[in-house]
Design a protein around this nucleic acid. Structure first.
Length: 860
RNA sequence: GCCCGGGUGGCGAAAUUGGUAGACGCAAGAGACUUAAAAUCUCUCGACCUUCGGGUCGUGCCGGUUCGAUUCCGGCCCCGGGCACCA
């Protein structure tokens, strides 16, 4: 055993041992309880960032912990390999996306191994491999046959200069990121999967996801957004085609004072033929991005069509407006507006001088001032003709019934959730396996022709937009039905398609089918760990996909992930300078010197290179775009993997955001050196197996009790996944062990204490604990050692400290025999001088005794 | 704009969930060892007052419930995540 802790050599040796012993390779074993621990696989962007390190450390800690509890643990790893950054890199460096991606995978895999994560690498997969995406192409054609896939027009961001579709991320302040041109909204045909068919099941089963954070469950419920409302028709005075609108507040129907339609609504387009102002407005509405955040934050604008809608109950004419906040793609592209009872309608009505008609009044209390703000609470109806006097709830039913009897509407259920658009107009993705034939229409690629391979051997220059779009070698094909000339679909899948089922493929990566029997041994995933930013999209799509797999007969379970841990962001300060062209140039924190005030708050910052000032951009998620990432590799090189793992676990609880701070890593390293020093002391002086039984000294007895209390706390914190507290407890134990004396009994306690700390720390710092466990002769394989339990006898105390409060304020701490009765405790509390001083002349009204904790004396 | 989180010393955090606020660590200060430095070890460390016993205030802000609130309720402020083509 070395005298000093030397992580680099030690970790290499232990990693070699794991590889030779095939420690983390697992097979199905019906005799053992299985545990499938999975961390969200990375996009191979180049190198690991701190968020990866944190995510995979949490996952590895959970996997190793479960292994130490005796379970058959599967922990695989793979690569979410398709995506936009590979195309960006291709444009920038003129390299093919495939080569760039595989190079990144090789480098990042090396980093994962260097960090000591216990993966079964035989199961590794990359989603850009034809052997992987073949099966999702196959499933897509199956879903098409079942009617769960369809094509419709949908809006995209169109860059009129580059002549290309842009991702939302590529639209900056309404302009294309490369061309700087104002982005337009354009409708093109795209493929959709009917997730709304599963909306009810996806929503109702959230109730059963007890292992998921409540926060994520709430977000998913709101995202699906099931609402019960009424669909109704407004006749149009100038048209035969009525307008259909949906509302969750039919009780406010008599307060409708206008109707708003999307700018692209056929009614608006027709009216615009005769109306230049309207035509210009519609043109204006086509500009800007498509994201919901963009649409919801633009100034709400509208323009009257000059056409009226007929109120279905009163028969009154109300004006129709074209409005930029109503979207053609959502619902029916038309909404009824009730300014008195809806905030957005209220703001719009005030802007355009539209009447505000109050029809709902509070059932008790003062009537609010409706001219100042909308009254959105339910209440009692007035000025509502036949519905006067009804409550909002009763009016909901009465109005729905009234409309239904007259064929003007009905109760319906609606979702905020929209069908999943899976088409992307990009090269680096899985080709959508569909064929367009002039004779036969849309024809799915037959299974024997799958996979539709994406050509990887392509050339990129700065003008390349999409290498397969205009490549006849790719798109030309023969129709599988009529054999005639046909065209392949050149759009590729949304990368969420790949990431929605990889967890299942890991169970049988070599199966000659999408999945085989092994899937049902391992699934569902027992513990899934990933970033909170995936709370809705990825996690909802994966739940949906699992149900598709189930209904295709490939798995038996209903849900993919039993327990979910959403780790917080790794965040860091950002610094930038404004460029002449209006963009921002971001500087890495390592390039910047920050001046702080006495309280440690940043005052100003300057660039080390030129000493000039830079702007402090606030704390944000570590990202390439903000250049605020901390490279974990330099920390690994300097301190070793165990220190980096220990520090990331210690510095924040897993589900909270981690504010990166280089200081502190040193402390984690120091702790491992202290552990090493204690182990060295044991090694240097191996003790006789049988030491003479001696009555333990009082201080040693206390030390042992404190160690077992900390052990109990650590076990509790392992269960609730507060790994930062586990590390704290281990540090506390080491601090106690450091203060022990030289007696044989001290040495015995030291041996016991170190064996406890090693096992508690084994999932977190696996290399050093593995080595010390072997070198000190505790056993051969710490992962298969007995998981520690506190000694109840050591925890027993003859007397306990109680806090004594007078009127809720702490006035004394007293020692109370453990078996004392309530009266005895009260008497001891009252006997204290300081307590008496604060009772003074007052009369004791009440004494509250909280067992093992405190006494509160209420005196007045 | 909408949905979801978070706010505790100079800093990261803890408080077994309504019962001693600040465990553990970082930074800082003092001391020991050393020719010296590093490393290591020991002690101090929320603010203010103090007769050195202790006292008053203190968990973003304002109010409430309670014998007792970081924890529960109502309102506000600030920061972060998501918003369907970043992954």
């Amino acid at each position: 055993m070395h005298k000093n802790y030397q992580p680099a050599a030690l970790e290499a040796e232990v990693q070699a041992y794991w590889e030779t012993e095939r420690t983390f390779e697992v097979e199905e074993d019906p005799s053992k309880e299985k545990f499938y621990s999975l961390s969200m696989f990375p996009y191979p962007s180049g190198k690991l960032h701190m968020g990866h390190v944190r995510n995979y450390t949490i996952g590895d800690v959970i996997a190793r912990y479960q292994r130490m509890l005796g379970k058959n643990v599967l922990q695989p790893m793979g690569w979410d390999a398709f995506g936009l950054p590979a195309e960006n890199a291709a444009l920038k460096n003129r390299v093919a996306p495939a080569g760039w991606t595989y190079d990144n995978i090789a480098y990042m895999k090396g980093q994962l191994i260097r960090l000591g994560f216990g993966y079964d690498w035989r199961r590794e997969l990359a989603t850009c491999q034809p052997g992987y995406y073949k099966w999702e192409q196959w499933l897509f054609t199956e879903l098409f046959k079942k009617g769960l896939v369809y094509r419709k027009h949908a809006v995209v961001n169109w860059d009129p200069v580059d002549q290309t579709v842009l991702a939302n991320e590529q639209v900056i302040d309404g302009r294309g990121w490369r061309s700087g041109a104002t982005v337009e909204r354009r409708e093109i045909p795209q493929w959709f999967v009917k997730i709304t068919d599963y909306a009810d099941e996806l929503l109702d089963e959230i109730d059963n996801l007890e292992g998921w954070p409540e926060q994520v469950r709430t977000m998913q419920r709101n995202w699906i957004g099931r609402s019960f409302g009424v669909e109704m028709v407004f006749d149009i005075d100038a048209s035969d085609e009525p307008l259909t609108v949906y509302t969750t507040r039919p009780d406010t129907l008599m307060g409708v004072t206008y109707v708003a339609v999307a700018a692209e609504h056929p009614l608006a387009l027709r009216a615009a033929e005769m109306n230049d102002r309207l035509a210009a407005f519609i043109e204006e509405c086509r500009r800007g991005g498509t994201s919901e955040a963009d649409l919801e934050t633009i100034e709400k604008k509208g323009i009257p069509l000059g056409i009226d809608a007929i109120h279905p109950v009163s028969g009154e004419a109300v004006p129709i407006y074209a409005a930029n906040f109503v979207l053609m793609g959502y619902g029916t592209g038309a909404v009824m507006a009730v300014p008195a009872h809806d905030e957005r309608d209220h703001a719009f009505a005030r802007e355009y001088g539209i009447p505000i008609k109050q029809v709902i009044y509070p059932s008790e209390g003062a009537n609010p001032d409706i001219s100042a703000a909308a009254y959105t609470e339910p209440g009692v109806l007035r000025d509502s003709g036949p519905f006067n006097g009804l409550s909002s709830a009763a009016a909901f039913d009465a109005i729905a019934e009234w409309l239904q009897e007259r064929g003007k509407g009905q109760k319906t259920k609606q979702y905020r959730l929209r069908d999943w658009g899976v088409s992307r107009q990009r090269y680096w993705g899985a080709p959508i396996p569909m064929i367009h034939c002039d004779n036969c229409g849309i024809v799915p690629v037959p299974p024997e022709d799958l996979p539709v391979r994406l050509p990887e051997d392509i050339v990129y220059d700065e003008n390349t937009i999409n290498p397969i779009k205009d490549d006849p070698a790719f798109s030309a094909c023969s129709c599988p039905e009529c054999g005639g000339e046909a065209q392949r679909e050149t759009d590729t899948f949304d990368t969420f398609m790949e990431s929605s089922w990889y967890y299942a493929r890991f169970t049988c990566p070599d199966a000659n089918a999408m999945l085989d029997d092994r899937a049902d041994y391992w699934l569902p995933v027992d513990h899934y760990i990933g970033g909170i930013e995936h709370a809705v999209l990825h996690l909802l799509y994966a739940r949906f996909y699992h149900k598709l797999l189930r209904d295709t007969g490939l798995v038996k379970s209903d849900e993919p992930f039993t327990r979910l841990l959403t780790q917080g962001m790794v965040v860091a300060d950002t610094y930038y300078r404004d460029q002449d062209d209006g963009s921002k140039h971001w500087y890495n924190p390592t390039e910047v010197e920050v001046e702080r005030d006495q309280k440690g708050r940043p005052l100003s910052a300057c660039l080390k290179e030129d000493g000039g000032p830079v702007i402090i951009g606030g704390i944000e998620k570590m990202s390439k775009s903000k250049n605020n990432g901390v490279d974990p590799q330099s920390l690994i090189d300097r301190y070793g993997a165990d220190t980096v793992r220990l520090y990331t676990m210690f510095t924040s609880p897993p589900d909270q955001s981690l504010e990166w701070n280089d200081e502190g890593v040193e402390g984690a390293h120091r702790f491992l050196k202290r552990l090493w020093a204690l182990a060295e002391a044991i090694y240097a002086e191996p003790m006789a197996a049988e030491s003479v039984a001696e009555e333990p000294a009082e201080s040693r007895k206390t030390a042992r009790r404190e160690i077992h209390e900390l052990l109990k706390k650590a076990l509790y914190d392992y269960e609730r996944q507060r790994f930062n507290n586990v590390v704290s407890a281990c540090m506390g134990m080491i601090n106690i062990l450091y203060k022990l004396g030289d007696a044989p009994a001290d040495h015995q306690l030291l041996r016991e204490g170190v064996s406890l700390v090693l096992r508690l720390l084994a999932p977190i710092a696996p290399h050093v604990t593995h080595r010390l466990w072997c070198d000190l002769g505790y056993g051969d394989e710490i992962l298969d050692s007995e998981w520690p339990q506190p000694d109840e006898a050591a925890l027993k105390q003859e007397s306990l400290p109680y806090v004594v409060q007078v009127n809720g304020k702490v006035r004394a701490t007293i020692q109370v025999p453990a078996d004392a009765e309530k009266q005895a405790i009260e008497a001891l509390a009252l006997a204290n001088d300081n307590v008496q001083r604060f009772i003074g002349e007052a009369t004791v009204r009440k004494i509250i005794v909280v067992p093992n904790k405190l006494v509160n004396i209420v005196a007045k």
